[in-house]
Amino acid sequence: MGVHATKVVLLAAIAISFIVSLFQSQINPYFLQIIIYIGINIILATSLNLINGYAGQFSLGHAGFMALGGYTGAVVSTTLGATPGGSSAVIILPLALVLGGIVAALAGLLVGIPSLRLRGDYLAITTLGFGEIIRVVIQNLDFLGGARGFTGIPKLTNFFWVFSVVSITVFVISNLVNSSYGKGFLAVRDDEIAAQAMGINTTKYKVVAFVTGAFFAGVAGGLYAHFVSYINPQQFSFIRSIEIVVMVIVGGMGNTPGVIIAAALLTILPEALRPIAEYRMVIYSLSLVIIMITRPQGLFGRELSLRSLLGRLRKQAMPV
């Protein structure tokens, strides 16, 4: 691809998001809601994929970062008194999202530190613990509404904001892992000792993965809070973290296009399964086990990319 191709794609995506958002009122509210959730889940899943898939640090605490971003954003926008449709929203929402992301990133830094000494199972359960601690602390903070939840968050999130952030997230994370600098993440995942022997500061890479991943999860939390206008600690329990993990695993760890598709499918699927809603988590968990036993690389494999798809088509088209 050309030198500036990815930037062009990014700008085009943001422009399209803007144009679509002009017609937002024409879209069936139910579909719009699903589309917004798809976008938020893509941000969550691709950012978790940086931690779990590319850097190989298994985290079960993504909902905690999301909660921090959501609550911070809610505090910012309610304090500044933003109103939906008001011109101040154009400044206040990005501010709320970024501050939410920063608070989540700081928490990511805190969680990243134990990751330097822990791996695999231990890290998973520690991050799960961090997520739960965040939830319990919020539950005990009266100014955040405690267990009753935080109400009256202005509905500022729309199609444009969600899909602009989706585009930025995908742009940043793809650029990162495709760059020479980003190869360090993959080296850390594959073999820490060899990575160190090649001069890779594995500590720094793990922390960078956690901080970056947490930042985007926080932004996603902010978008979510400003879409539903009411949040409570229960919405960010570890079941939420596990849903995001499932998206990453179904899509294939370390496979951004696969994870994006999986995030979309797994957002739509529960809607399609609504008549048998009580089976949803049973189906989720069973498919997790079956995928791990039969296709641990995810449904789409590690090679899925536009280029490889085109390559495969071309090969098939060629006479043998």
């Binding site: 020479s180 600098y181 190869k183 993959l186 080296a187 594959d190 073999d191 090649m198 001069g199 590690r302």
Partner: peptide, 19 residues
């Protein structure tokens, strides 16, 4: 041998140039 198993030959060497 401790090559990075999921990386290509090119990428394995690319890791060394990160520093």
């Amino acid at each position: 041998i401790r090559l990075f198993p999921s990386l290509t030959v090119y990428e394995n060497i690319q890791v060394s140039l990160v520093k």
